[in-house]
Amino acid sequence: MSQKPIFVATHPRACSTAFERVFMTRRDSIQCIHEPFGDAFYYGPERLSGRFAGDEQARLDSGFSQSTFQTVLDRIERESSEGKRVFIKDIMHYLLPPYGKPASIAPSLHRIKRGVGTEQSVEKAPQQQPPNGINLAQVTPPATPTGAPYPYDTAAEPGNPTVMPTELLSSFHFAFLIRDPHHSVPSYYRCTIPPLDAVTGFHNYDPSEAGYDELRRLFDYLRSVRLVGPHIATLERDADEIDSSLKPAVNGFPKEAGAEICVVDADDMLQKPAPMIEAFCRSVGLEYDPSMLCWDTEEDHQCACEAFEKWRGFHNDAIESKGLVARQHAPVVKTEAQWDAEWLKKYGPDGAALIRSAVDANMADYLYLKQFAMRV
């Protein structure tokens, strides 16, 4: 079994921080790194997001205004050298340009090492076309802010939707965490309005940050170059039986099987936490222990507070939690009209309309990824 750093790729508000806390209990053998690529995505000189484009002070105050994608990888490499298995949980759209824009390699990663004492530039390649998985008619990108670092004046890799070269992507063992947009979208929206926005510093809801389109495109690309799949954890069917539409592997990358596909649906995890975490551990090569589901010591809480400090307001529930406990009852199944009524009551007509639009825009990508989710 590979001992590569585990990279749990997810979207916002997928119960991912609670999921991460499970593995933070294993501090003797696992080194958790919490959402490192957001530093470069939002604040650094290679930032892809325009969220703080007009607020230079916010970028400086973050402490990450000099973070590049390379400095993030440098940190991961340093922590990988400590003898523990590295566990990264991160939001996948941090590695992709927003609004389905074509990707090119981040300038700091444009020259990557290919063996001791050697390096080589990423070859020039045509930009990929806008993805089929995003409805650009529903989401209109804002004008690129003056002085924004993206788009980069760098090469692209054929088919690669990220700003990271495939050779670097291949250094991770990828797994995936998803959740129904009916839950994740309003949860994220709540963090961008009063009173929470005063804590988070995110003062508007940006539909491009939902993250499903980016997660799906990365998932399909990793499948196409056989970094994951075709075998699906806990299922007898292979991914190619579910979706055989992907193009053949890119030249230069193996066509043999990669790491098995490991997709966790957060709502399934909340129903059966122990079996799901055990199946996840088996898939990625970690030893499972039931004690991982409980974190109620002073050391546990201190570790969580320090790890989640940079994203204030987003992780309050996970910080205050004591463990991962199975739900006592199955979640109530709601009609779309009931969802709309709930959002209208909580967030008013404008908020409800924005949530509805985002949910509808992301359901197809969620349902696509759901096909590959583990069953326990």
Rank of each mutant, 00 (worst) to 15 (best):
R51A: 05
E157Y: 05
A341P: 04
K255W: 13
V8N: 01
L169M: 12
I30R: 00
H34C: 08
Q127Y: 14
G211H: 00
G229W: 02
A266W: 01
I261E: 03
P273R: 02
S121K: 11
R27T: 09
R237A: 12
K84T: 03
P254I: 15
D61H: 14
D90A: 11
L286I: 06
F64M: 10
T335G: 08
H301F: 12
C262L: 07
Y152K: 05
P275K: 01
F314A: 07
E167K: 10
L196W: 07
G258S: 13
S81V: 12
C32H: 02
H11M: 14
F87R: 00
L109G: 00
D197A: 08
I88D: 02
C32N: 06
P194G: 09
F7D: 04
P36S: 05
K345P: 02
P290Q: 06
R27G: 09
Y205W: 08
D90C: 11
F176N: 02
V264S: 05
E214K: 06
T162R: 03
E336T: 09
F308N: 02
T192M: 10
T192D: 07
P36V: 02
G44K: 04
D220F: 06
T200C: 09
R114S: 15
T146W: 13
A318L: 11
E82H: 14
G83H: 05
E157S: 04
G351E: 04
S171L: 15
N160E: 07
D317Y: 13
D296S: 13
M24Q: 07
A148W: 14
G229R: 01
H11T: 10
F69M: 05
F314D: 03
D197K: 04
K255M: 14
E287R: 09
D365V: 02
Y221F: 12
P248A: 12
A175D: 08
H173L: 15
E306I: 10
Q31V: 04
A373P: 00
N316H: 14
A266R: 01
T192W: 06
S208D: 06
A352S: 08
Y99I: 08
I193C: 08
M24P: 03
M276I: 12
G323Q: 04
L168R: 01
A137W: 10
V185R: 00
T25H: 01
P141T: 07
H173Q: 15
D296V: 07
K101G: 13
Q70W: 11
M92D: 09
A337R: 10
L354C: 10
E123R: 13
S108A: 12
Q66G: 09
E157F: 05
D267T: 14
T335Y: 11
I30C: 01
A304I: 07
L246W: 09
A233E: 05
